[in-house]
């Protein structure tokens, strides 16, 4: 962005030229770079190399999607929340109740139902809460999520309480592909959903709207002064983020064939935040690296030492912060440069 400052602002008559230049810049910037295929190739390769680990693989893809939703608001709009599990949980319950209460078990519409419910909640809570920032916002989102969980516990007949709702059995995908114990179908299903959602999110991020969000993140005062509708832009991105988290939650319920109030746990909000920071926020691929690393490492450590695996995770987190400094593991691996479209025209 600094580059534009060094150039003299075009005079009034040239504004259309300048606008065309900006449009051109945005289009060029959003082009896919070859290296961006790497994560997807890795995901497909994992399917063939570790065929017996695909249940974990599916859970990892879901966490990547969840982290991606958080990246939208944390990485691009600078909003730190401790209540993102609320949208994940609402999506999970939306998809589950569609099956168990309404008897509609087609999987893709389940995802849409989860996204819709989470989006509505995101819109309402965002409209109310996004006036606040910092510690207040952190504690507000945290408290609202806990209250939501307690409310679910109070209406146990409806939600199943912490014992949950068993028998969330989705119909075969597209009426043809059934699910297997090895989780192969689920893995491909999750990967497909992730790819589609990722494409949409990428479009949003590189649109003028996404640019405005970065502006809000970098200097909210100036964006206000420019007359940018800051609050509404934040509400919109928060709603989109909630919808994506809802899709992740819906996938979670469908692949586990089960949902409990545990999906609203504080741990859930904290874990996704850790994964995203681990991989680095604000470049879309942070969740890929963070979630994959965290999930696989946790699984392996817990296998080696069921009691003390947290020690290893803790060591990793501290090590990353101290020695990579920016806390962005992706950057030290130097892949971000390859994956991130250039920010300068």
């Amino acid at each position: 962005m600094d580059a534009s400052k060094s150039r003299p602002a075009p005079a009034g008559g040239e504004s259309t030229v300048a606008r065309a230049g900006v449009a051109d810049f945005l289009v060029r910037r959003s082009r896919f770079r070859p290296a961006e295929a790497l994560p997807w190739i890795a995901a497909i390769a994992a399917f063939f190399i570790f065929p017996s680990q695909m249940v974990l693989g599916g859970q990892t893809l879901i966490m990547i999607l969840f982290a991606l939703s958080l990246d939208l608001i944390l990485g691009y709009a600078g909003i730190v929340t401790l209540g993102h599990a609320a949208f994940f949980g609402l999506g999970a319950y939306g998809a589950s109740l569609l099956i168990t209460d309404l008897g509609w078990s087609e999987p893709v519409s389940g995802l849409l139902a989860g996204a819709l419910i989470a989006a509505i909640a995101g819109f309402l809570s965002g409209w109310l809460l996004l006036r606040y920032r910092g510690l207040a916002f952190l504690v507000l989102t945290l408290s609202v999520t806990i209250m939501l969980q307690q409310l679910g516990n109070l209406f146990r007949d409806f939600t199943g309480g912490y014992d949950g709702i068993p028998g969330v059995n989705v119909a075969p995908l597209f009426g043809r592909f059934d699910y297997d114990i090895y989780g192969h179908t689920y893995y491909l299903y999750c990967l497909g959903v992730l790819l589609i959602v990722f494409y949409c999110v990428r479009r949003i991020v590189y649109s003028p709207f996404g640019q405005a969000l970065v502006g809000i993140r970098e200097n909210i005062g100036r964006m206000n002064a420019l007359g940018s509708p800051v609050h509404w832009r934040l509400v919109v991105v928060y709603t989109i983020s909630a919808a994506v988290a809802g899709i992740a939650g819906a996938l979670f319920a469908q692949t586990n064939a089960f949902v409990t109030l545990g999906v609203f746990d504080f741990d859930q909000s904290a874990a996704v935040l850790i994964m995203l920071i681990l991989g680095g926020a604000g470049w879309l691929y942070g969740g890929f690296i963070g979630a994959a690393l965290y999930m696989v490492l946790q699984n392996e450590l817990a296998k080696a030492s069921p009691e003390f695996w947290q020690f290893g995770i803790g060591l990793l987190l501290i090590g990353v912060v101290l020695f990579v400094r920016r806390g962005t593991l992706g950057r030290v691996l130097n892949v971000s440069r390859l994956l991130q479209a250039r920010t300068q025209p």
């Binding site: 920071i277 003390f308 695996w309 947290q310 987190l317």
Partner: peptide, 24 residues
């Protein structure tokens, strides 16, 4: 000087290690 996200990550890590150590 670092951002709050780095601080969160490190102190959570410290907490995890403390829990495991005291459990041990």
């Amino acid at each position: 000087g670092a951002g709050e996200l780095d601080q969160v990550l490190m102190t959570i890590g410290l907490t995890f290690m403390a829990i495991a150590t005291y459990t041990y």
